[in-house]
Amino acid sequence: MASQGTKRSYEQMETDGERQNATEIRASVGKMIDGIGRFYIQMCTELKLSDYEGRLIQNSLTIERMVLSAFDERRNKYLEEHPSAGKDPKKTGGPIYKRVDRKWMRELVLYDKEEIRRIWRQANNGDDATAGLTHMMIWHSNLNDTTYQRTRALVRTGMDPRMCSLMQGSTLPRRSGAAGAAVKGVGTMVMELIRMIKRGINDRNFWRGENGRKTRSAYERMCNILKGKFQTAAQRAMMDQVRESRNPGNAEIEDLIFLARSALILRGSVAHKSCLPACVYGPAVASGYDFEKEGYSLVGIDPFKLLQNSQVYSLIRPNENPAHKSQLVWMACNSAAFEDLRVLSFIRGTKVSPRGKLSTRGVQIASNENMDAMESSTLELRSRYWAIRTRSGGNTNQQRASAGQISVQPAFSVQRNLPFDKPTIMAAFTGNTEGRTSDMRAEIIRMMEGAKPEEMSFQGRGVFELSDERAANPIVPSFDMSNEGSYFFGDNAEEYDN
């Protein structure tokens, strides 16, 4: 993207840094990872977990959730003011799984939030270390993106479920800051804005008074975040219109849905970061690795190297396929839920299948599930090659597409044709070009129609051997075009429920 120079890199967003050079960025990201790792080690000690239990991804998720809940100030305040039966607002906890007599047992633990905050700050040299908290939120978000298709949420806001490739980060909490905003897809931002506008339509006082002023500035800020994701002048001009509207209503909703559809071809720039579970960072720190000293990046080879040398386990339900569970977590670790499966298959070195073909449910185990038949197995999170994460949407291309997802959002900077089903997408653009945004709409449609099938995206960008740390010898991959490109292809993934 041309304006790259004016933006802070995501590592800076990730670490609240002012302008830093590459070495400083690597050190501050490393410091953040160190903090998460030290916190995780301490929690495993508190909970008396064995090494194996500490490497269980379900335990990692519970521990991450506990610290996120302990620092969720708004919710904590709300819980104190609106006490609900049987919930102690000062405590947080969740299921911890232990191996007892050759069987997995679930144990519900409860801790004072104050105590968890103390352990977290102690692991982070006394700081609140917001960057580390956001990092864990993005890992949870990436896992949700890989596990669930947001059909219901899309339909509720009037969008087409086939636009799911635009929904990265749709389950990120509001408090995820600049680093969170960077990884949100165009569809996620559109959905947040539509929800806001709908509230304004239904509630006369939404934009009024002292609160209304705050609401208005939040609305304009979200519009600017979305505008910054678009790469064409016409899309940005249309966002200006939406932002400046005196009284946002149905016309703005129409414009936003139009823009979301246009992003299936004229893709937005959305950041991709490899955020790993805390149970990967903990053992690495415990083994003596100093992330701050060595430096770390979320968008280069580092996460690949770390996963190459990590042992992570997962509980497996009786009829689940461990290899499929591994694929789910591998995609989440690489922030690749909406990437082209052919690119992923090449990088991973084994075939990556669409969601609907995987015999696996989510990673988390519900409290009512029976533990008797639970097994555990090693997650295979290694890769054959590594590639640089991208934040450009890439230019655009036609490809055989599917009944489910009709476009992709690249996660890796790797040369390819970008699949999208042009006739299906263009069919949504018939007729409606009147109104105050008509010239911009016409211009956007013209650009979409001009998108050429034979153009290559990320020209000359390749993948790298894991021994090639400096990215000196790019390998331009070859793809098996007979395979499906979309992950949520004609899909039956479970729906995400809060």
Rank of each mutant, 00 (worst) to 15 (best):
S3L: 01
Q4L: 00
Y10R: 13
M13K: 15
T15D: 07
D16V: 14
E18Q: 08
Q20K: 04
I33L: 00
G35L: 02
I36V: 14
R38K: 10
Y40V: 14
Q42G: 00
Q42P: 05
C44P: 04
L49R: 01
D51T: 00
L56M: 02
I57R: 00
I57K: 06
I63A: 01
A70M: 04
R74C: 08
R75W: 14
R75H: 13
Y78I: 09
E81P: 13
G86D: 06
K87S: 03
T92I: 15
G93Q: 06
G94R: 05
P95S: 01
I96C: 04
Y97P: 08
R102H: 15
V109K: 01
K113C: 10
E114K: 09
I116M: 14
I116R: 12
Q122W: 02
N124M: 03
N125R: 01
D127W: 07
T130P: 06
H135S: 02
H135Q: 02
N142E: 05
T146V: 13
T147I: 14
Y148N: 06
Q149R: 12
R150S: 04
R152T: 01
V155G: 03
M159G: 03
S165T: 12
Q168Y: 10
G169W: 10
S170N: 01
S170K: 11
L172W: 06
P173Y: 07
G177M: 08
G180C: 05
A182T: 13
T188A: 08
M189E: 04
V190G: 15
I201W: 01
N202I: 15
N205H: 12
R221A: 12
M222L: 13
C223N: 09
N224S: 13
I225C: 15
L226M: 11
K227F: 11
F230D: 10
Q235I: 02
Q235K: 06
M239V: 02
R243G: 03
N247Q: 01
I253D: 08
E254M: 08
L259I: 01
R267F: 05
K273Q: 09
K273L: 09
A278L: 06
G282M: 12
A284Q: 07
G288I: 10
Y289H: 01
Y296W: 12
S297Y: 09
L298F: 08
K305Y: 04
Q311T: 05
N319I: 08
E320W: 09
E320A: 08
P322T: 08
H324S: 01
H324Y: 14
S326D: 08
L328E: 07
V329H: 10
W330P: 05
D340P: 11
R342L: 13
R342E: 09
V343N: 12
F346P: 14
G349E: 14
T350Y: 09
V352K: 13
S353C: 02
K357E: 15
K357G: 08
K357H: 08
S359M: 07
T360Q: 07
T360A: 12
T360K: 13
G362V: 12
Q364H: 05
S367G: 00
N368D: 05
N368P: 00
A373R: 05
E380V: 14
L381T: 14
R382C: 07
R382V: 06
S383I: 07
S383T: 01
R384G: 15
Y385K: 02
R389H: 11
T390E: 10
S392E: 10
S402W: 08
G404E: 00
S407W: 10
Q409F: 04
R416D: 08
K422M: 13
T424I: 15
M426I: 15
A427P: 05
G435Y: 11
R441A: 15
A442K: 03
R446D: 14
G450A: 08
E455L: 15
M456E: 06
S457D: 06
F458A: 10
G462M: 10
E465W: 04
F479E: 10
G485E: 08
D491C: 02
N492R: 07
E495M: 01
Y496S: 02
